[in-house]
Amino acid sequence: MDFSASPSGYVRFVHPLHAVLLAFVFPLFLGTLAADIAYWRSAEIQWSNFAQWLNAGGLLVGGFALLAALVSLVRHRKFAIRRPAVYFVVLLAAWIVGFVNALVHSKDAWAIMPEALWWSGAATLLALVASWLGYAGFPAEEKH
């Protein structure tokens, strides 16, 4: 992986495979939120089932993205100081919130609202921030 500085002074942190995995996390959690909103508005139980599957997909792909982020932090310690570490922590928080959301969705469909809606919103917001941090690039020279 090339960590040389670009003309703008930023480096690419994520490996291309890591970027592909990261590209799925936000849309899957966003789909979970959209399905929860649809269930909240319609009370059609299939939306709850759809939200469960989307959330499970977000957790599966997010787990692999989290593993890739951890490998990058361990392999390139001089870059694991600030923003890459914050990226890892935010992605970990999104995964944990998504896991709690999966536990909430495991209850009876009538019992998950509005709790599932809040957890889905939090997971979506954290996944958005993690994606933004992961794709933004990181300064080539960070001040300690």
Rank of each mutant, 00 (worst) to 15 (best):
K78N: 12
L67Y: 15
S48A: 15
P27M: 06
Y39H: 13
W53Q: 11
R77C: 01
F79D: 05
V90C: 02
L59E: 07
S42V: 00
A94S: 15
A69Y: 00
V90W: 03
V25I: 14
L28M: 10
A56Q: 12
G62F: 04
V61M: 09
A38S: 14
A80I: 09
R41Y: 08
G31R: 05
E44C: 06
L21I: 09
L17P: 01
S48V: 11
G31V: 03
L33K: 02
A68I: 03
A23Q: 03
A34Q: 07
R77A: 10
L103Q: 12
S42R: 10
A102K: 07
R75V: 11
I45S: 10
F99M: 11
I45C: 03
R75I: 06
V71I: 14
Q46T: 15
F79S: 06
V97K: 02
A35M: 10
A65G: 10
P27G: 02
L30C: 10
W95L: 13
R75F: 08
L67Q: 13
F29P: 00
Y87L: 13
A68S: 12
F50E: 09
V20E: 07
N49F: 08
A43L: 13
A93Y: 03
A38V: 07
A34G: 05
W40H: 14
V104M: 06
L66Q: 14
A35N: 11
A19Q: 05
A94G: 01
L67P: 05
S42Y: 02
W40M: 13
R41W: 09
S48G: 15
L66S: 12
A68G: 09
F24N: 11
N101L: 14
F13L: 12
Y39P: 06
W95R: 07
Y87E: 12
I81R: 00
I81H: 00
H76Y: 14
E44Y: 15
A34K: 05
V25E: 03
R83W: 02
Q46H: 13
R77T: 08
R83K: 11
L91M: 11
L22Y: 00
L21W: 08
L103T: 13
R82F: 06
S42A: 08
A23G: 14
A102S: 14
L70R: 09
V14D: 12
A93S: 15
A102E: 09
F13T: 00
A51P: 01
I81V: 15
L22T: 15
I81L: 02
P27V: 04
W95C: 08
L92F: 11
L33Q: 04
A23D: 12
R75A: 13
V61R: 01
V61D: 02
Y87M: 13
A80F: 08
I37M: 12
A51L: 03
L66P: 05
G98H: 02
F13S: 00
L66I: 09
A69V: 00
L91Y: 04
H18G: 08
F79C: 03
G62N: 09
G58M: 04
N49T: 10
A80M: 07
A102C: 07
S42N: 07
A51H: 01
F99I: 00
A23V: 03
A19W: 00
V90L: 08
F24A: 14
P27F: 04
F88P: 01
A35R: 07
A51E: 02
G62Y: 05
V74C: 05
V97H: 01
L73T: 03
Y87V: 00
F88M: 09
L67N: 13
A56W: 08
